[in-house]
Design a protein around this nucleic acid. Sequence first.
DNA 1: TTGAAAGCGATACCAA
DNA 2: TTGGTATCGCTTTCAA
Lengths: 338, 338
Amino acid sequence: MDQVNLKRLAKELNLAISTVSRALSDSYDISEGTKKKVLALAKKLNYQPNPFARSLRNRSSKTIAVILPEIANNYFSVAINGIEEVAQANNYHVLIYITHENLQKEADIVRLLLNGRVDGILMSLSGGPEDTDHLKELQESKVPVVFFDRVSDTIETAKITTNNFESGYLATSHLISRGSQRVAYLTYSGELSIEQQRMKGYMESVSKRGLLFREEFIVCCNRNSAENYEKIKELFSADGRPDGVFASVESLAILAYEVCSELNLRIPEDVKIVGFSNLRTASLLNPALTTITQPAFNMGREAAKALFEALKKPHIKMEDQTIVLRSNLIERRSTAAN
Amino acid sequence: MDQVNLKRLAKELNLAISTVSRALSDSYDISEGTKKKVLALAKKLNYQPNPFARSLRNRSSKTIAVILPEIANNYFSVAINGIEEVAQANNYHVLIYITHENLQKEADIVRLLLNGRVDGILMSLSGGPEDTDHLKELQESKVPVVFFDRVSDTIETAKITTNNFESGYLATSHLISRGSQRVAYLTYSGELSIEQQRMKGYMESVSKRGLLFREEFIVCCNRNSAENYEKIKELFSADGRPDGVFASVESLAILAYEVCSELNLRIPEDVKIVGFSNLRTASLLNPALTTITQPAFNMGREAAKALFEALKKPHIKMEDQTIVLRSNLIERRSTAAN
DNA sequence: TTGAAAGCGATACCAA
DNA sequence: TTGGTATCGCTTTCAA
């Protein structure tokens, strides 16, 4: 029974619980004298208010959730940094959930959070179709959500993205301008909005630059699959193999490097490669990888900011906080002209 | 007032709140009939118990905290994966806190967690002295803690580490066996236990192999400092510069690569490099980096397992769950013999 | 087998 | 300026 709570403080000071409570919250109608006494004792006993009693009473948890498809990936870890910074500044706690690209898990997690455990959610979708039940339930609940990077097209709320279409266009055009004639596109399922945007940019560039569009140059990989390596190897082994590759995801760019190494294809002489990536070591690769780099930290920060804005001003429209940031093409040796 | 809680369920079913509660927790002394009715309605209305009321009443939060020095680093992100897996399996929630290598922040966070918000803590220390007040407070509180990787020497509890001394010895001996005569050691402050272990391994190897020990070959860097690059550059610019480098941290290995590139030092011909690292792309670097790789996922998983073990069996001694895992030396071109 | 009520710890309203 | 008390939603003891 050495719990330090309001009751204990009140008893030791011969005050009512309510008085102590108000003294601690610096209420106007408490005399300076008692305030000081209360604060002194609270400090001495190291009083820490019980967070659950508070949350129960106030219907607010001082906690947000971050739902991610994966984490061992520089983009998401850096984004978390941005989120965490804003959360700490707002005295909020951050719960983390990883879906491992598994829609069912994503659904379970979302449902877990609709009972008031968190005041808001930051989310980057796992791959797959977007019109899912759990997203609808999420929308119907009043828990505010901000999507970042892998956003939902179907839900109206704040979304933090980058200019994916333009980046896809730019990456492809960059390859072409450096001499690639047969440009392949590596992607995952393609059901996510951002994947479609990037692909559209690729297609547009291919067609505008007058390249021949080839079905077999679009390689659709599976997340969490060991077969992707083989798929890419096949692409590179065929007659009329590509001489340029645009990887829409970091992990596929890495696979492409590994395949090239096995097949003794020289980068950039035989194949030029550009990929979406936030790798710290992109410039140290062999050869240095040309990347489309997203402002991961800022995306996390802006997403968190948008959420806290909504928490502070419940009346504002989430949609109005949508932001499109810019990714950068950083040219390195993997796309050097021959 | 469309909240779904026990009261609401009880009213709609003309039952007492306590009955409903027991039915939902599948208590023995409730008839099958009412159980079914209750479960049916609960499902229909999508009843979700209020987590705070539960936590308040049960004095358990179903939540653990993970305190990390940083996150944009493959080791820690992978470790989180391991932690998260175990937590999800136990139906626990995971709070994340990042100290950014800042002791004051670490102290604030730890104190924040001593009020019952979490049932247990997983922690990897931020750099600096270990005998700090907040660690003492943590120990005195009854919140169970498991340290992983950057463990505390002074606190007795479960610790998950790798064989740091042996790894340091092995890395250094490896450089020497590949022909390095002047082996430098790059590290951070050196106040953490694991840093000291690694350094001791280095020293032991240097002395056993009969190399000359040189004070100036031990380069002590500062976390979060831009000057580290310059420090390493200085090391490599001096007469009698090292021809082998052991980086005790991934980020310092990367800096070494960058410095070598600027100074036109060839790896491994002019300088051989080995570093602690969990980089996915180590084998794709120019040249591929020889690494000491820690079993990050397993470390996270074992740490979480140890914590849950302690939560389930409060009587067991935490110390007994200490585990030392093995890191691997993966030889690549950066340490090839000339 | 079910119901009533106390209590977890903090907040806020109403009285005094 | 302070005290008493109801309340948040759930669990559990005691009674019926």
